[in-house]
């Protein structure tokens, strides 16, 4: 067979590699098994403070708008905008995830979600909220569908 060549520029494709959900699941599980619950929370809170530093500053300036804009952007990138519902009052922002794209992907691939996967939401948002002087609370969850609800409150 003749030589085959594939030549691609970044602009030829959309950046959406769902296999990374499997990589995240494996990494979280490894941290949990090696360093325990506290290790998972430490890793994710370190990550949140570092990576989400611009978001934290934006929340301090723009409040709930910054969180809404971030979530809309992320779920749009995941081609899952329909899974996200946001409800605002003067003092609260409630987020309802009808179905989690990451969990959907893992289940589709036959990968068992790590028991620490929950912390990719709980610890990260608690850290962002704490750093930007908001309250954060998990309200509901469902392991099978990935449906979830959480709330930010003004302090």
């Amino acid at each position: 067979m003749a030589k085959e060549v594939m030549d691609r520029r970044a602009s030829d494709n959309k950046y959406l590699h769902r296999d990374f959900h499997g990589g995240m699941n494996y990494g979280i599980n490894y941290i949990g098994e090696t360093y325990g619950d506290d290790g998972v929370r430490e890793y994710l809170s370190d990550f949140a403070r570092t990576y989400h530093a611009p978001l934290i500053e934006a929340v301090k300036t723009d409040g709930f708008d910054a969180i809404e804009n971030y979530l809309k952007k992320i779920y749009e990138a995941e081609e899952a905008s329909d899974e996200l519902a946001l409800k605002r009052t003067t003092n609260t922002l409630t987020v309802h995830i009808r179905s989690c794209p990451a969990i959907n992907y893992l289940r589709q691939k036959g990968i068992k979600p790590s028991r620490w996967f929950v912390e990719t939401t709980r610890t990260i948002w608690a850290t962002v909220a704490e750093a930007s002087v908001l309250g954060f609370e998990l309200l509901a969850y469902d392991d099978k569908s990935g449906e979830a609800e959480y709330r930010f409150t003004l302090r």
Binding site: H17, H21, A102
Partner: peptide, 24 residues
Amino acid sequence: MRAMISCTEFIPAYSELFKFIDRK
């Protein structure tokens, strides 16, 4: 609770994971 770090944000999370293991 099942939610996520977006797959579009995995790379910085991966890099920070290496740094965490290295520190520990």
